[in-house]
Simulated assay, not measured.
Amino acid sequence: SSDYYDDLKLDNSILKAQTDSYRRIRNTFRYLIGNLNGFEENEKLPLDDFPELEKYILHRLWEINQTVEECVNTFNFHLMFTTLLNFCSNDLSAFYFDIRKDTIYCDSFQSTKRRASRTLLDLIFNHLVRWLAPSLAFTCEEAWQARGHTSSIHLEDFIPAKKEYQSTDLQKKWDMIKNVRKVITGALEKKRAEKIIGSSLEAHIKVYVSDEIKKIIAKIHLDEIAITSSYV
């Protein structure tokens, strides 16, 4: 998306950046559609039964919804698109999808964690496909119909995010956990570049944090969040 408040520029590097942005969104839809294959209403899990990670992403969905509503009301469609792009890239692809892919692929169909994840993916899809439809008309139409719909996505209204999605306490906690994960991921990349490890699952990590942070991460499975074999 280009900022149309300024003169629009065009060269090969800009086209490449736009192509990359589109690919990220398209890959997000591909992940959602693929991992929602066979999803039925009776598989849905009540939001109260969601694990903390899913509740955190729900909060992010609520935050994105607030931004989208403000952008629509003020006609700031550039900010709306970049917000959605960053959500797809940072919150979903680089974080949530990465953590939960093994759960979706390997856990039993009746697993609470798997059901929660697929329920959340369904919610994300239904919001995202509506939000992006004005910008990516054909892609969103194809994504919508890939879920079995026969009507057009362009006849659908935006879905307001429910107030119960909001959780400021979880946001503070999981923003901190994301920062810890970012440091771990950076360290793993160095070891991968040095050919010491291949997959991150080959790593056993030692985490040095303050006592306050240690109390928080002690209550979660940091090895699952960081996608490593274990940690101390």
Rank of each mutant, 00 (worst) to 15 (best):
Ala94Leu: 09
Ile57Phe: 03
Lys178Gly: 08
Arg26Trp: 05
Met176Ser: 10
Pro51Cys: 05
Asp3Thr: 06
Ser2Gly: 14
Thr185Asn: 04
Ile159Thr: 08
Val207Met: 03
Leu92Lys: 00
Ala17Phe: 08
Glu69Ser: 11
Met80Thr: 00
Arg100Cys: 09
Thr67Asp: 13
Ala137Glu: 08
Gln171Phe: 13
Ala193Asn: 14
Leu10Met: 07
Ile220Arg: 13
Ile217Phe: 06
Asp6Thr: 07
Arg24Thr: 06
Ile25Pro: 00
Gly186Ile: 08
Ile184His: 00
Lys172Gln: 10
Tyr22Lys: 03
Ser167Tyr: 10
Arg147Trp: 07
Phe77His: 03
Cys88Asn: 09
Asp7Gln: 11
Phe39Val: 09
Ser200Phe: 00
Ile33Pro: 01
Ser167Arg: 09
Glu164Gln: 10
Ser210Thr: 10
Thr82Asn: 02
Pro51Trp: 07
Gln145Met: 10
Leu84Arg: 00
Asp211Ile: 03
Glu54Ala: 12
Ala187Lys: 14
Leu8Ser: 10
Arg26Asn: 03
Phe95His: 00
Ala143Tyr: 01
Asp20Pro: 08
Tyr31Cys: 02
Ile220Gln: 11
Ala137His: 03
Thr103Ser: 12
Lys173Pro: 01
Ser199Glu: 12
Leu132Ile: 11
Glu70Gln: 13
Ala116Glu: 03
Trp131Glu: 04
Asn12Leu: 12
Leu85Ala: 04
Arg60Leu: 09
Lys44Tyr: 04
Ile104Trp: 05
Gly186Phe: 07
Ile99Ala: 07
Ser135Pro: 02
Thr82Pro: 01
Ser93Pro: 05
Ser2Ile: 12
His204Lys: 15
Asn179Met: 13
Glu63Phe: 07
Leu53His: 02
Glu202Thr: 04
Thr83Leu: 06
Asp157Ser: 15
Lys178Ala: 11
Ser152Thr: 15
Ile197Gly: 06
Asn65Ile: 12
Lys173Tyr: 06
Lys113His: 08
Arg192Gln: 14
Tyr31Arg: 02
Pro134Gln: 05
Glu164Tyr: 11
Asp11Trp: 03
Arg147Tyr: 06
Glu156Ser: 05
Asp7Arg: 10
Ile216Ser: 10
Leu155Met: 11
Ile99Val: 12
Arg24Gln: 15
Glu202Ser: 08
Thr119Ala: 06
Glu164Asp: 15
Gln166Cys: 14
Asp211Gly: 10
Thr185His: 07
Leu170Ile: 06
Gln66Leu: 06
Tyr31His: 05
Phe97Leu: 01
Asp98His: 02
Thr139His: 04
Tyr231Ser: 05
Lys219Phe: 05
Lys195Ile: 09
Trp131Asp: 01
Ala193Gly: 11
Glu41Ile: 15
Arg23Lys: 15
Glu69Val: 12
Thr28His: 06
Pro160Trp: 08
Ile14Glu: 06
Tyr5Arg: 14
Ala226Leu: 13
Leu36Cys: 12
